[in-house]
């Protein structure tokens, strides 16, 4: 029965891409997985891509021992405040952040491994009413927090050993920032979506708020996942977790919208919808490169190729899926999907 649940099903006639089950891991000491991610771990001169799983009260690091065999290397205990999400720091090694809170994020902690002392540590990075957080390249972390009337958007950077360096403050927009995305290929550009459905662009070097552009009423409650600039235009991958389904256009899980930052005009480029015969709306998901994955209300995981503009693989709802994340991988090893089930099992699929 377990094997049947995990066999990926391709939508009829929608291509040859597929998901191949590589391995499963389950934390026997915890029944619920809140989030899953990957991080590079280097110890005794050996650098490996490890899996990180989070339960409500702890975060565990898993090392690959062989085909379908994982060893739990360490568990950080995080105390009374529940874990909400793992915040990976792209391209970093031995460092990962975690967001904790009740209904909202109340603090962010850095979890780290020190190869010098061969020890695992944790430190408090930020506290407050944190509305959005994202790990950036070069061991940086951006977060937005709300005081009574003011919003603070701040970047903190870490040394290789996890020490916090002087931060940078970004000019906040009037509206609450709901999500961030780095602009790929532009080291100093960052975008964010806001609670009133705008896209904002910052200059990370100067902290300037460069532009605010309304996304449009056709694309409500947008959350940005990925952004890149091409030929003078800004392309943003959006999801709409809180949008109402409309009869005319259904409820696509992801959309790509192109903006002209010079004029603030925009238009939709493509929408990622479920193939005919499948139902369910977007719950949560992840985008890496041209690949997007989402867990739907039906319990299905769906994968889309954003370049082909089509759904290319489905994990059926019998798997009772709760999480879908793309792993950090080498360019040569291809894409790897981490899919978490409600019983706490995490399945690794090669795409």
């Amino acid at each position: 029965a377990v094997a049947e649940e995990s066999i990926p099903v391709l939508p009829d006639g929608l291509g040859e891409e597929s998901l191949q089950l590589l391995s499963k891991l389950k934390d026997c000491s915890s029944s619920c997985v809140v989030d899953v991610s990957t991080m590079w771990w280097e110890a005794a001169g050996c650098r490996e891509l490890c899996v990180v799983t989070a339960s409500e009260s702890s975060v565990s690091l898993w090392k690959p021992l062989g085909p379908d065999h994982w060893e739990k290397v360490y568990t950080w205990q995080l105390g009374q405040i529940p874990v909400i999400q793992i915040v990976p720091l792209p391209d970093s090694c031995n460092l990962v952040c975690v967001a904790l809170g009740d209904l909202e994020i109340g603090e962010i902690r850095l979890l780290l491994y020190s190869s010098e002392t061969d020890s695992f540590k944790q430190s408090l990075v930020r506290t407050g009413t944190i509305k959005a957080v994202l790990g950036l390249k070069d061991r940086r972390l951006v977060s937005s927090s709300r005081a009574v009337q003011e919003q603070h958007v701040e970047i903190v950077s870490f040394s290789e050993t996890g020490r916090s360096r002087d931060g940078q403050t970004l000019m906040p927009p009037e509206e609450t920032v709901s999500a961030f995305a780095e602009v790929e290929g532009m080291r100093d550009a960052l975008v964010g979506t806001t609670a009133v459905n705008s896209i904002v662009i910052w200059n990370l070097k100067t902290g300037q708020l460069l532009k605010k552009m309304h996304i449009g009423y056709s694309y409500p409650a947008s959350i940005c996942h990925r952004a890149y600039s091409d030929s003078g235009l800004l392309f943003v991958v959006l999801s709409h977790p809180h949008a109402k389904e409309s009869e005319s256009c259904g409820n696509p899980a992801f959309r790509v919208v192109v903006f002209n930052p010079s004029t603030a005009r925009s238009r939709g480029v493509m929408a990622s919808s479920l193939p005919p015969g499948h139902t369910g709306r977007y719950l949560e998901g992840d985008v890496r490169g041209a690949l997007a994955a989402a867990v739907l209300t039906s319990g299905t995981v769906a994968v889309w190729d954003l370049l082909l503009s089509r759904c290319t693989a489905l994990l059926p709802p019998a798997g009772d899926w709760a999480l879908a994340r793309w792993a950090t991988t080498d360019a040569c090893t291809g894409a790897c999907l981490l899919a978490g089930q409600r019983d706490g099992t995490v399945c690794l699929y090669r795409y």
Binding site: S229, G232, V258, N260, R267
Partner: peptide, 23 residues
């Protein structure tokens, strides 16, 4: 997308917006 949809495009939009925006 055609240019007429989105208005005139600038390859240097990031530098231009940085020069115009308040410090």
């Amino acid at each position: 997308c055609s240019e007429s949809d989105l208005g005139p495009v600038s390859l240097n939009w990031f530098e231009e917006l940085s020069a115009e925006a308040p410090p």
